[in-house]
Design a protein around this nucleic acid. Structure first.
Lengths: 344, 344
DNA sequence: TTGTATGCGTTATCAT
DNA sequence: ATGATAACGCATACAA
């Protein structure tokens, strides 16, 4: 990498400062001069030195995006939306944390080191005093450093007051609506496949489920009819079998998300049970594949793409933050073929 | 961002150079001194300035990953594998190109500007003289700059000789094996839903299909039984309808990838056709959802995760490049329920 | 509108 | 083993 600002300046017979001004475009430069500079840039095929520029300006054009795993559609869709919104002005640094607070800290530090322009943290938080405060401390540090921090799908409480903007998902509301739907269909023995115990998303969705049950006096067996597992297909499969063991007369199973529901459906089919004739199944998120399942999956739609796109705009400062720095993204119940009235 | 190397140095009563040596760890430092420095680093909660470091050392710890779209499982899986392999030593900059050469160029330039340590380009290339040479030129520039370039799923011919390492997918072989499988089952009227016409992946898969047909003297109607479209569900849906219109007696449809196959299946079901009783369907890639389809999809498995992981290791220089800089990743035919003997 | 000069925080070279 | 000190390439305050 040889050609620098100085080379371009020499070729255009101007000072390096002028070239810098032309390229950043945020300073008046005579049209004729600008043209000469641009020509020199073209002729030399000059490309700015990002690190040097970042050092001098004390800001970079990197935006960190923390996700559990980009290969998971839930996060992949958000990462994609962020990337699209950033366009060619900023680069998205995608970090797979696997949901681990330690790795979140590691990446947050790495992004701090890069002087990232912004950081978007997606997905639920792990509920643990030490973890939460450690992550909060890093967020405070980032914010103090001028890095915009946006939470997408994580409670605002995960960041110190005033250090971040949060777009929360209404997991509780969605969970409640879903179970209300099943109860309205006539279901009374409803199994629940929850996610990992210590995560906010898990708790909120479960809370909503329980609230619906309680509202109809159906919460007596709630504990027994709840099985925890990971947010993946395998866990859904195993949990469904466990639920059927505990309660063979189950008429419905609510999964903590669509991927888990996929495993639940597979397990039911293996057991020779028909959906929804024998057992109704519901998921959460409304990922693309859910509508293509046979039968199509009843679920709670979260506008992941829209929310992430907005998170990106907030991160870029292109959109004003909501009142109080928090906004709740609405959900939408998607009733499809996987749920129906219980047999009998 | 206040605390710098100098601050740490002052606190540890050493020079900045020593602190730098301790932190990079690639230079002998007295144990006692190292301890003192580390303590100062801890006490001040010092974090290196990435841009400054990159400027001075002329290298960054950024690795660019070009994908069509991270939200697409095919690419999401690869991006995830790369990210995982990079660990905490490097950051993955994920760029959605949408398959557009222009955007590839844009991102390549951005990565050049960042002095990225490496760039991994995934997915097929657009076959067009201007585009190809423009991208090749950027790759040459990156390579000349010390950036390692690795192609994953793109022909080695997309980069100038010696500038990149390539892990190619055996799209032709896979396509051929798939159609051979259908022919062996007894199918004679096989429709093909191809991807966008000008892409290498599209052409290679189609070539394989045609080769199998030709080997059995079935290529007379090949042209008429081929419909091109995008690599998405909607295109598969539309293409299936079009194929049925052209040839109502079709007994099998091969889709250019699993996502397209999903659309094909949906269209067939809407037409009241059973899979595989009335029409067999096959896909390509073996994405996670394929095994969960009803019936499960016969497809060609590509080891996306493994290939991408290896691409990352090559990008980091942790693995030796294959002979000639090119290696072909093997495929594996996955025969499942969506294909069977034709009716009658 | 343009040029000059200085600083940004590290790394690496050269002494010691 | 450690310390000065000169790059690294750009941005910006200040001058002109």
């Amino acid at each position: 990498m040889a050609v620098t600002l100085a080379d371009v300046a020499a070729r255009a017979h101007v000072s390096a400062a002028t070239v810098s001004r032309v390229l950043s475009g945020n300073y008046p430069v005579a049209e004729e001069t600008r043209a000469r500079v641009m020509r020199a840039v073209d002729e030399l095929d000059y490309v700015v030195n990002g690190p040097a520029s970042a050092l001098a300006a004390a800001t970079s054009d990197l935006v960190g995006v923390l996700v559990n795993d980009v290969a998971d559609a839930f996060f992949g869709i958000m990462a994609s939306a962020v990337q699209t919104e950033l366009g060619a002005s900023k680069l998205a640094v995608v970090c797979n944390t696997g949901g681990s607070p330690e790795r979140e800290l590691t990446y947050l530090t790495l992004l701090l080191r890069q002087r990232a322009a912004a950081v978007i943290i997606t997905g639920s938080a792990v509920e643990g005093e030490e973890h939460m405060s450690a992550v909060a401390a890093r967020i405070r540090r980032l914010a103090a450093n001028g890095t915009r921090v946006v939470l997408c799908g994580r409670p605002a409480s995960a960041a110190p007051e005033g250090t971040a903007v949060a777009l929360e998902f209404d997991n509780r509301g969605g969970g409640q609506a879903l179970t209300e739907h099943l109860i309205a269909l006539g279901h009374r023995r409803i199994g629940y496949v929850a996610g990992p115990a210590e995560r906010t998303t898990t708790r909120h969705r479960l809370d909503g489920h329980r609230a619906a049950l309680a509202a109809h006096g159906l919460d007596a067996n709630a504990e027994r009819l709840t099985v925890h597992g990971l947010y993946d297909r395998g866990s859904g499969h195993a949990a469904a079998l466990e639920l059927l063991r505990r309660e063979p007369d189950l008429t419905a199973i609510v999964a903590s998300n669509d991927t888990v529901a996929l495993g639940v459906c597979a397990a039911l089919r293996e057991k020779g049970l028909r959906i929804p004739d024998d057992v109704s199944v519901a998921g959460f998120d409304d990922l693309p594949f859910s509508a293509d399942m046979q039968p199509a999956l009843t679920t709670v739609r979260l506008p992941l793409q829209e929310a992430a796109g907005r998170a990106a705009r907030l991160a870029l400062g292109r959109e004003r933050a909501p009142e109080g720095g928090v906004d709740v993204v609405p959900f939408e119940l998607q009733v499809r073929g996987s749920t129906g009235a219980p047999r009998g």
